[in-house]
């Protein structure tokens, strides 16, 4: 394996694994729109930050927190209202991102970089950041497993057993934001969401217990991303697009197998 391929496979596997974890959160909270809103907010942050000479990853992460903050603590704990709010916030950030693409010097080029992403431009520093975020999230899940599990099951019930559900809920969204921010330049804002949502959808039918679900989803994300990257290099195809299609193929194949039953 040449160096470029090896680096890309490692980077994409880490992307896939991190998105697979974030995907479980978003899937189980029933708030897919927050995933989309977070991806676009990060993109807006990254585009504007570069023009202002700031670090795009940090700006993307900070911007990713806006949808979370704007969703409030969702005291009513209703996913439907979150999805509606998020579709408005998503529109706002898409506007901000493309405004930046249109008026900033070099904005269009940068925007297309964040829209499509490019693992080829990733260096080992980026790989380290991807790995770092994955490790931090895994550690948080291990340490706060019971609280996270209760909130993902039902916030009202979690609260009744003494879990600070608003805090845990926000913490989960911050983790999703971190995943979006570090994956933006690698996979691109447009395809990030596919990488987030398909692994848990594929894994859901096979998993019993949350631990199992998280592991399977991260594994599904990593494997299909690695496979997509290798295929893209082999046939000289765009990596992100190949990875997304490989994800979808993975999901399609998973349907051929019987699920874990009830």
């Amino acid at each position: 394996m040449d160096n470029q391929l090896l680096k890309s496979v490692i980077a994409m596997s880490l992307s896939g694994a991190g998105c697979g974890l974030a995907g479980v959160f978003i899937y189980m909270m029933g708030i897919p729109f927050i995933g989309v809103a977070i991806a676009h907010a990060s993109m807006a942050g990254a585009i504007w930050a570069q023009a202002l000479g700031l670090d795009p990853k940090i700006a993307a992460f900070i911007a990713s927190l806006f949808p979370t903050a704007m969703s409030g603590n969702n005291a009513g704990r209703q996913s439907a209202s979150v999805n509606i709010n998020m579709s408005v916030i998503f529109s706002l950030f898409t506007g901000i991102a493309f405004m930046g693409a249109g008026i900033l010097p070099g904005g269009a080029l940068r925007a297309s970089g964040y829209l499509w992403g490019s693992v080829l431009l990733a260096d080992y520093h980026d790989v380290a950041v991807l790995a770092g975020v994955f490790i931090i999230i895994s550690a948080a899940v291990i340490i706060f497993y019971e609280q996270i599990s209760a909130v993902l099951f039902n916030r009202e019930i979690a609260a009744s057993t003494g879990v600070n559900d608003s805090l845990v809920y926000r913490g989960i969204l911050v983790m999703c934001g971190a995943v979006a921010a570090v994956n933006l330049s690698v996979i691109g804002g447009l395809m990030l969401y596919s990488l987030v949502i398909i692994p848990p959808v594929a894994a859901a039918r096979f998993s019993r217990g949350l631990k199992n679900f998280l592991l399977m989803s991260a594994f599904a994300g990593a494997i299909s991303a690695a496979a997509g990257t290798i295929i893209a290099f082999g046939f000289n195809l765009p990596v992100s697009a190949t990875v997304v299609l490989s994800n979808c193929a993975f999901f399609g194949i998973s349907l051929l197998f019987p699920g874990a039953g009830d």
């Binding site: 189980m28 029933g30 209703q78 039918r205 679900f213």
Partner: peptide, 9 residues
Amino acid sequence: EGNYSISPF
């Protein structure tokens, strides 16, 4: 709330 049609729990 039934937002987890397939929930692992």
